[in-house]
Structure formats: C-alpha cells, structure tokens
Design a protein around this nucleic acid. Structure first.
Lengths: 232, 232
DNA sequence: ATAACATAGATAATCGATTATTTGCTGAAT
DNA sequence: ATTCAGCAAATAATCGATTATCTATGTTAT
C-alpha cells in the first residue's frame, strides 16, 4: 500500500526537476559536454526517465545561472563564451572580491577565523590532481578551493555580496573547465597560505593585494581558452 | 490557410512563456501583489489563457531573478524580504557601484559621454510623480532613473559587471516598491546633476563619493519597509 | 476541552500526446 | 554549378489530463 506515513521530518523526496537540475548543472560544470553542444530536452528526458516538462524547468533554471544558452525556438546549448567574456568575468572578480574581502576582514569574528583556518587546512591537504581525473583539477580540490575563497569573504556577513561571489565563481569555474589548462607550475599552496595569513592578521591591504594577484594569474591561465566566439 | 510565409525577418512571434514571464515580472515590479502573496500557477494560467507548463517555466525564471520565492511542494510567492536583506542589497550597491563607476569614468569614450548626457536630460525632464500613479514614482521616471544609473556605469565596457548592476538594481527597485516611501523632500535632481557633472569631468573621486551618498540616502529611505521577516 | 487521527478539497508536480517551428534534403529552374 | 521553392524529418513549444502532496476541516478518544 502507498501509505504516505510522514513521521515529522521525512527524507523529503525532492522534486524530480530538482534532481534533473542538479544532474544537468554537475554535468556542465564537470565538462561532460563541449561548448556549443545542444542540450536536447528529449534526450535528457529519456536518459533521466522523466517527462519533458521537468527537463524544461531544469534547463530554464540552468540558463538563469548562465550555465547554458537559450535560443528561442532553437533549443538549449552549452555556452561557448568568447575570450572577451572570460576576461570580463576575471575582471569582475578582480573588481569586486577585494572590496568584499576588506569588509570581511574588518567584520569577521572568531568563528569566521576558525572557519578560514579549517577551509585552508582542507584545501592545503587536498591534492590538486589525481590520476583518475586526468588533466583536470580534482573535484575534491575544486570544491575545497571554492569553499576556501568563499569562507574568506563570508566574514562580510552580506548574503547579497556572497551571492554575487557565487555567480562569478560559477562562471569562472566554467571557464577553467573549458580551458583545460593545467598550469602545474603555479604555486597555489603558497598563494593561498599568504591569503590566509594576511586575512587572519587582519591586514586588509596585503590580503586584497594578494587576492588581486591571485586572480590575475588565474585569468592569465585562461586566455585563449575560447574555442568559438558566440557572444552577442 | 496557415501558410507560414516567413519573408526574412518576421515579427518573430515570441514564445508564450516569454510573454507570461514579462507579464509576471512587470506585475511584481509594479507592486500589483503584496509581499508574501501566493502566485498560483492555475490562476495565472487561466487569466493568461495558457497551459500550466508555460506558467511554470515563467515562474522558475522569475524565481531565478529573485523576484519570487519558491517553496518545494508549496508553490511560488511574492518575496517578502527582511529589513536586514534590504540593507544588504543597499550595502552591496554601495560596495560595488563606486568601483564600476571609477572604471567607467576612466574608460568611457565620447559616445559614452553623449549617452550620459542624453540619459540625464531625459531623467531631469521626467516628472517623478504623476497623479494617476498615486504615491509611487512614475513608471516613466523609474525607467529613466534606471537608464541614467546604468549608462553612468556602461563606460566600463564589462558586461558581467553591468549584469551584476542589473541584478542589484532589480532587487533595489523591488524594495522601493514595497516600501511605499515617497520621500518628496529629497533632492533627486541635484544629486543626479552632480553625478553627471563629476562623471563627465572625469572626476572619479567626486563621482564615487556622490554616488555613495546617493545610495546611502536611498537606503535610509527604505529602512522599516519590511512587513514580515521571511528570511532563511 | 484538547490532541491525535482521518478525510476531502485544493493545489503542486508530473506525464503523454499534440501543435508549431526549424532544419536538412530533394529537385527544378536559372 | 548554383539558387531557391517545396517537402519531410527532427525537435521545440504547448496543451489537457493524471498523480502526488499539502491544508484545512471534522471526528474520535483521552
């Protein structure tokens, strides 16, 4: 029998559209599809075992986050950004993140300090590359990297600014994936250590400067990663 | 007969979901619904004469832009932000827009200067209040206001930063609507004139300072406008 | 009277099928 | 050979109906 016994907090079987959305988002961020590839609702519906409506909803959400393009009456596609757009994303980060970092350093409390230390520790102990995942940064490292950078900013206590960071980070990560640029010579560990030290020492000037340099190098590693130019 | 003669560029009958989306967005931004009001797909579908699927797609887009909330299995609703969130939006603008304005002033070309002048002219000549629209700023003035502020920043030439501005502006306008705060004593005209002058004189320091003051006053006018506290 | 339970109605989520648009192909006309 | 109209297949967009979930109301046991 289909008794829907719901004793207080049930595992909360999430909506199908949520599941499809997460799957789609992960697939795109993981680089499963090449830039410009069509995302056909019917194919996705079949492989996910759901109807077109839920796929459509998920795709619309993905488009809203900039993880896919939509051409009316012509379907959805993995975005293929121009070099110019990659540079704009990087510049936006260089413009905004230092400002937020300064606020964070000024306002962050002890709990924030502790979380910065924890995030840095995890990042430093996670290998950036593992054989199984080829040329790409390991997914564990990518996540630890994101959490470290976000935690650095979380002291600002402003959810709107953090949401802005999240958007820029997502766009930036997409760029990193498509660039397939390994850049093994780069001293990630040192850069992140200096960031952590300056932040915990409440040295906003140094922290902001280190962050801008960090972002500039990231941007440099991404130039020339755009296969096509599909910008409006 | 249903011959779809398509001689080159046809009026391009847009998708229904696009129309519904625009209608929904306008209705929310115009303040047609009170914060917290449910946005029922069935009602909207009936009054728009479309199926549930298109309404659903439009609603998902609207949620993505922060113009509506979604509670899984519980439907969509007009967002009711907390006071804290309004302040965060205002702070985000104060943090980000001055930085972009500086870039814009540094990089803007003659065409940008001309567009700033045009936008300011239009704003200055548009009445902020008209009897027909009651206590609210007139929609013509609101649009001219948006265009002026955006044009000021457009010299930066960075679409990602401008998109960030657009998001913050939308959130900010929603706040203004819900606050229903007329604030007739405020010298909008003078503030905008000083902004224009400083920008065209390429005086970034003054322009940034004026902008921050402008935004601070806007924020002050919005405190105490949150009817409920539905923040996570 | 109150709290746990059951049931009915409303509404959200999903589905399967239909309609509309685009795209690629074929063949005739230049 | 090239261009362009006219089909045909693919796929995007939409619809009407079904299923799942929530909410409010009413009932019964303490």
């Amino acid at each position: 029998m289909t008794r829907t016994a719901h004793p207080s907090n049930f595992p909360a079987k999430q909506m199908l559209s949520e599941r499809v959305y997460a799957h789609l988002r992960d697939a795109i961020m993981r680089g499963d599809h090449a830039p410009g590839d069509a995302l056909k609702p019917q194919d996705i519906a079949k492989e996910q075992g759901v109807s077109l409506a839920v796929v459509r909803e998920a795709l619309v959400r993905v488009v809203g986050e900039g993880l896919a393009d939509r051409l009316p009456n012509r379907g959805f596609a993995v975005p293929s950004f121009s070099d110019r757009r990659w540079q704009e994303i990087a510049e936006a980060r260089r413009s905004i993140e230092p400002v937020v970092l300064r606020m964070s350093i000024e306002r962050g409390d002890v709990d924030w300090e502790a979380r910065v230390r924890a995030a840095h520790h995890r990042l430093a102990r996670t290998p950036a590359f593992v054989p199984e995942e080829g040329e790409y940064y390991s997914s564990a490292w990518s996540e630890a990297h994101r959490v470290f950078h976000r935690t650095l900013l979380e002291g600002c206590g402003n959810l709107v600014l953090l949401d802005t960071f999240d958007r820029l980070w997502t766009a930036s990560e997409l760029a990193r994936r498509f660039s397939a640029h390994r850049d093994p010579d780069r001293d990630h560990v040192g850069e992140h250590r200096r960031l952590e030290e300056a932040a915990l020492a409440r040295d906003a000037d140094t922290a902001a400067e280190v962050l801008v340099r960090h972002l500039t190098q990231t941007a440099a590693a991404l130039t020339g990663c755009a296969p096509q130019t599909t910008e409006a």
